[in-house]
Every structure is written in structure tokens, then in C-alpha cells.
Design a protein around this nucleic acid. Sequence first.
RNA 1: GUGGCUGUAGCUCAGUUGGUUAGAGCAUUGGAUUGUGGUUCCAAGGGUCGGGGGUUCAAAUCCCCUCAGCCACCCCA
Length: 450
Amino acid sequence: MLRIEPRTFRGTRDFLPSELIPRRRIVRVIEEAYRRYGFQPLETPAIEYLDVLTGKSEENDKLIYEIRRARGDAEETAESAIALRYDLTVPLARVAAQYATLPRPFKRYQIQPVWRADRPQPRQGRYREFVQCDADILGTESPLADAEILALTHEVLTALDFEDFRIRLSSRKFLAGLAHVVTGDVRHFGAFCRCLDKLDKIGWDGVESEFQANDIPATAARSLVTQLMATGGESPDFSATRKLVGSNAAALNGLAEIETVYTAALDLGVSRRSLAFDATLARGLDYYTGAIFETVLPGLPHLGSLTGGGRYDGLVATFSKENVPATGTSIGLDRIQTALTQLERFKAEPSETQVLIARFDDAGVAKSLELAATLRRAGVRVEIWYDNDRMKKQFAFADQQQIPFVAVCGPDERERGIVSVKNLATQQQVTVPEADLAAHLHAALATMGK
RNA sequence: GUGGCUGUAGCUCAGUUGGUUAGAGCAUUGGAUUGUGGUUCCAAGGGUCGGGGGUUCAAAUCCCCUCAGCCACCCCA
């Protein structure tokens, strides 16, 4: 018999309990923040029709996983070709176009995996299957919506105890205006953005040669952007920025929006040090039309962005006659987990069980089951021991699994109607009346913060 | 997609100029210890040396191919 080698597909991972337990806690923090901001949940299928997913961003079409059946019976037509979703934004736009009954504004959050066929790199928090936590607001052009997305991002990262993070803010309109100012030609917009985006990686000399390679006046561009950077950052001087871009309408327009978003974000509680206006932020996804933002950790520069998003007022219209303005962000669960791991703040937790009821002897089985039932009804997370093993083995198990308490009910205890409860961390063992066991554990767990 | 590095036990690794039956630590299981974990001691199990081909009397070791993993870039969450 041929044995199949057990393995996982490149860029995908199993989440064993000791990793999943703290990972789910992160998800809970994010979800609670989303709910506090008034977002409603949405889930969509992992599989979408290919034509729904493609054509939004040329670069990314190449990274879409198409699905091919191992034993396809019919030839796939363009309409029936299917693929794994690449992000959650495009499915959302599809949903917005497909259901006329959705409220406006429509605020939804969605926490689900997406798949991209690029090369995995764990140190950078990059995988082929990863979970995005998206929050988006459809149906308003108001900059307050963009500001609320920034505040939400700030709130989540703060709740996760990130001490130093930077939300970079810019605008597609502003960048388009800049590109026009520098090159006199809007067609250079894409190349202009890509070059600029590389600044923090390859420095100005590198960017200048990139500009030249793309027929963009390098010296002029460098001079303008250098000055822009001086007026931006964590305490931006927007009136100084305005003077630099002159009379270009798109640039002025975009800048005004940035300023409004920035100010409203501060009003919503975003700290100055965590928010920066950054003219070198470009972002790749082609569907962004207005404000764009992403979050990085200055302490972990090799890591990709923790969050990324922006305004995409034209996307829903690719599925509908109706044009629905939209803005939102994606928080990368795996990036967050990677960051916390590298900051040594992500601790493995093998079990959530609070008490193990040991099996002392056969005669005590019924009593143990009764105790377990009572405790479970009282909301305690309980495990029982199934086999007739020695105490040593049962305690060793509880220790390994970091189960805080072991309850033993042997002949002595049974005779007196009590239970011995040992706290494995303090090594202290007490006896409590059977009837008080739940109350005792609740109190003890509460003082331990569990 | 481009470039580089690395593959030996579940994990981290050692293995001499190619030389007998491939080792260690950790982990696992059992015992020392039949009412109680972490320490200690003893023992055991666990290996297609990533896979295939080649050179050789002889390959974990040298050569070729291939697969996988990692790192940087690209891009992004």
C-alpha cells in the first residue's frame, strides 16, 4: 500500500491548537472593534467566477488561483471559469451590486481567508492563504468615512497593544496631480507612483534612475517630492504643501481631501504620532480613486504593511449601473500575528481547559462525571480523564497543557463529600465541599485573570 | 516573476581527505516512584540521510537533474 506523504501546500499552514488559541483572541479583538464602530458582518464564498475577480488590477490578475477540476467533464467557458477570491473588496463590490435591499450607508466587516499565488515569505508575513479582516463603508463620499476607517485601524492596533505604528495617508487624486505637475502628462501616473513607492527601500539615487527609466524628469520630481516630504510626515503643514503644488486642480483637490480626513481622524481619537501624511505612499491596487492608507511598524521594516486600504469610488460600477462610492481597509491577521511573534508577544497556549478532573479509581468514575457535568453547567471548561492511569501521568498532562487546576476525588474525598483541588502554578492544594467546587474555581480563576 | 542559500530522527543540529552497523541534545514512551506535574537518573522506540540518476571496490559526503524550504527583490495583507 502506497503511503501518501503528509504535507501542506506551499504558503499554506495548519493552525495547531497552541497557535490557534491566541490567534483567535486577536480575531476577537478586531471583531469587537468593528462592531463598536457599527459594522455588520458579511461572508462570501471562497470561490467566485473568474470574470468577477479579474480586470480590477492588471498586476494582480496573475496572482489569482484559478480552479480546475481534477476530472473536468466539460470545457470551461469564460463564463463558467472559477477561481479562489484574491481579496474581500471585490466580492464586496459584487455583493453591493447584486442586492438592492442593502442599506445605505452599508457598513460591513468580513473576516475570511483569501488566496494569492505569489512567493511565500514567512519573515515578511507573506503567505498564499491568509486571512483579511476588512471593514468598508459603501454609499458615501464623505471624508468622514475615510477618517472613521483610520480611527478604526488605530483602535484595533492600539487594542492589540502595538506601541509604535505608523498609518501613512495620501491620496490618488493628489498623486495624479503631482504626476501631472512633474511630467505634464497624466499617462505617467502609474509609473510615477511605482517609482515613488520604492523610496524607502532603494533611496533617492535609486528612485532617480527609476524615474529616468520611465521618461520622468528625475531632477524635478526629486526636488518637488523632497519638499513635499518636508511639509508632510507626522505633523504636516498642509498650507506649505499647497504652495508647493501650485495651481494644479487635481493636486489641490486631493490635498484638501487629505487634510479633511487627517483632521477628522485626529478628532476621532487617532494620535498624532501614529498618523502621517506621506506623499511617497502609492499602493498598487488600481481601483483606488481617492484617499489611500496603509500601516507599517517602524520597528519591523522588513515586514509588509499590517493594514492597507483606501477609497474606491468606481469599483461597484464595474458590476452595476449604479455608482456607489466606497472606502475601507483590510487588516492583515497574519501580518499582525507575525509582528507579535517577532516582538515576542505572541505566546503559545496549548489548551483553554480550566480544570482537569483526575480519574483516581474505577469506583470514583460516576462521581467524577457528576462533578464534570455540574462544573460545565456552571460555565467552567472541564476535561475528564478517560483511562485508569496513574496520578503522575494525569498531573503531567495538566502541566503540559497548562491547565491551571486538577481536581481529585479519591476514596478519602468521597467519604467526606469533598474534592481536592490543586493549583498547579502555586502548587497549593485545598479541599472544598463538592457543592462549593464551581464557586471555588470561579473565584480562583478570576483572581488569576482567567 | 527574478536572484541567492539550505535539505541528516517529530524539532535543533554533528557526521573528518568518500571507508564497517549514521550519532547527540530536546521531544515522545516506559521505568526508578501504586494519591500529585515541572528537577534528576535509567531504558526504549523513532532514519527512503528530500527524491531520481551518475562516478566509485565503497556515497549522508563527489557530479547532474528534480522537488521542497528559507532569504532578498517584485508586489502586497
